[in-house]
Amino acid sequence: MKPSKLARYLPSGRHAVIGIPFLWLFMFFLLPFVIVLKISFAEADVAIPPYTEIYEWADNKLTLLLNFGNYIFLTEDALYLSAYLGSLKVALFSTLLCLLIGYPMAYAIARAPKSQQTVLLLLIMMPTWTAILIRVYAWMGILGNNGLLNSLLMGIGLIDTPLQILNTNIAVYIGVVYSYLPFMILPLYANLVKHDLSLLEAASDLGSSNFNNFWKITVPLSKNGIIAGSMLVFIPVVGEFVIPELLGGPETLMIGKVLWQEFFNNRDWPVASALAVVMLAILIVPIILFNRNQAKELEGRP
């Protein structure tokens, strides 16, 4: 018996399998985003919750009241722009640093004997088994004026007065690079380990130097790994709050802190939401690039 036309529209096992990720995205991305978007068009109010409703149903009429004031407000004070730029700058430099440190590490792991690779990967991942908050606190203990690093440097007589590292941007970079390095190394490793080494041999046979081999063959082939790792570091660092709050100083201006101030100090959930929506809009560009790259990877094209 042929399946009826109706059956085509009824959910089948296959739909359920595809449906789960969609349901997940709907519940944990789209729905929260719509709520934040809704709040960003409201006005702050003294109530529970502390903002006005944007729609009203009365006399069989639905009135939608969108307040764009919050978005306009963001353009009126240079603070918000410099906070976005501050976040993007920290994210950009941290990504570059992660790449500089992560690439040789990933390369070394990928070229190590198979038996050692699991152990080496485990060593990269093991720190992430401890909560990030605890690890950032540990950095406070290391970088402080009477912390481990300064005591050591003073102990061996390299410096006389403690270096001011904690509560500066340097500490933020150290914390961020440390925390996000595994997210750079893992996709790079996954890419590098798949390379066909006979390509390098062939190039060497034709007289290419090792240096040339690396730049002309390995790096271009690992482009997708570099992009994936960079996105995994860049995107979350833009919105990072915990690390700059604990390790940064007064000159550290990032969007996460400004968001906190709007939300908690000013009790202005609508402006805070508008800030978050704009941040998402800024991040959509690299996310789209990332997705396009992923799609290419799946199709097997370089």
Binding site: I48, P49, P50, F263, F264, N265, R267
Partner: peptide, 10 residues
């Protein structure tokens, strides 16, 4: 601020 955010969220 933390207490208040909790209370205002309900």
């Amino acid at each position: 601020e933390v207490l208040e955010a909790k209370l205002l969220a309900g």
